[in-house]
């Protein structure tokens, strides 16, 4: 139920993101979701792509510092308070969220949110118990 996310170290200088997306484009890799965390000096780009293994390979070859991180893709009801339900469940169980970001596309009528948590297996069983739907990796890559 884990989704492989590509994380890339980016210096804050112009053109880096353009180069990176070009590399992915040339390899026929589609970006499903992305987010950037940044400081004044550098940023970390997080990507969900159509083919993580291939993305890792081509980005490394292009000289980027890349890693793969396990995240979970959670279906959240697209209505007021939808996200709060999920967050509350995680909080009650003492699961720390490192970061989260949303998909633009949807798999259904629900919104899709990527979570990076410290205790990923605990989070998965907790979400299952609470009948919150979590998408499989291959389903996410195909979106």
């Amino acid at each position: 139920m884990k989704v492989q996310q590509i994380s890339v170290f980016l210096e804050n200088k112009s053109g880096r993101l353009a180069t990176l997306t070009e590399v992915l484009g040339e390899a026929g890799i589609n970006i499903r979701a992305l987010s950037i965390a940044d400081t004044s000096d550098f940023g970390i780009l997080r990507l969900i792509v159509s083919n993580p293994a291939n993305a890792l390979k081509v980005l490394k070859e292009a000289g980027f510092t890349v890693s793969i991180t396990d995240v979970i893709a959670v279906e959240v009801k697209d209505e007021p308070g939808g996200l709060a339900v999920v967050l509350k469940a995680l909080e009650m169980a003492g699961i720390n969220i490192e970061y989260l970001y949303a998909f633009l596309e949807k798999s259904s009528n629900d919104a899709l949110v990527v979570f990076r948590v410290e205790q990923i297996d605990d989070a998965l069983s907790l979400l299952a118990k609470n009948n919150i739907n979590v998408l499989k990796g291959e389903d996410v890559y195909k979106l």
Binding site: Q5, S7, F9, A37, D38, T39, F42, I44, R46, T65, V66, S67, T69, E98, Y99, R116
Partner: peptide, 15 residues
């Protein structure tokens, strides 16, 4: 230069 060994997906760890 940030090597793969140094790199973390989390801003906090890099800081």
């Amino acid at each position: 230069e940030v090597s793969e060994k140094m790199f973390s997906d989390e801003v906090r760890k890099l800081e």
